[in-house]
Amino acid sequence: MHLTEEQIHSYLDGLLEEPARRVAKAHLLACAECRRRADELQTLFAALNTLPDLPLSRDLTPVIYAKLPPKQGKTASRPAPAWTRSLAAQWGLVTGCALWLGMRLAVMVELPAILFPTITLPALRLPALQLDVLPDQFPMLQIPIPQLPTLDFQTPSFFFSLSSSHLALLLALTALPWVMGNAALLRSQPEVRQ
C-alpha cells in the first residue's frame, strides 16, 4: 500500500507529527514508486526555492507617499508615552471604586435630605379695567357698564427635597457614561492599545 498524496506532501513540507513522519520516512525508503513521486516534488521545490527576487526598476516610495490619504483623527506622529495609559487606567479604577462605594453608602446610611430653599413670590394683583370712568367723560353715552372682576394669580412656589440616594444615583448616571466614553476613546487609539 502506497502513501497518500497528502502524506507525501505533508512529509516533504515538514508538517507531519513525529509518529506519522517516521512511518512515512520508512515507507519512502522501502517503496520505489512513492520515492519517485517524492523525488519529483523535491525537484520542483528546489526549482521554486532558487527563484531569485527581481530588482525594482524604480523606487516606488515617492509615488506611494504622494498617494497616502491623511488618517482621520490621528495626528500624533509619536506614540503616547506609557505613563498616559497607566494614568488613564488608574483614574478609571479610582472613579469606578468611588462610585461603587458611594452607592453602597447611600443605600446603607440614610443621610439627611438636602432641602432647597423655598422661593415664594408675593401674589400679584392686577387691577381690572375700570370702565366706569367713561360716563363722566362722555355723558352722552348712557350705557350701563358692568363692573369687571379683578384678576388675581399666584406664582407657583419652588420647593423640593433631594435625598442622598437620589444624589448618588444622579452622580452614577452622569459618571458611568463619562467613564465608558473615555474607555472607548482610549481603546480607539492604537498607540494606547498596546
Partner: peptide, 17 residues
C-alpha cells in the same frame, strides 16, 4: 509600525522603502 499606525507618513515611507 507604531508611528505609521498613528498616522506618521514618514515612518510609513521608511517601511515602503
Amino acid at each position: 509600525a507604531l508611528r505609521a499606525a498613528a498616522g506618521d507618513r514618514e515612518a510609513f515611507a521608511e517601511i515602503v522603502r
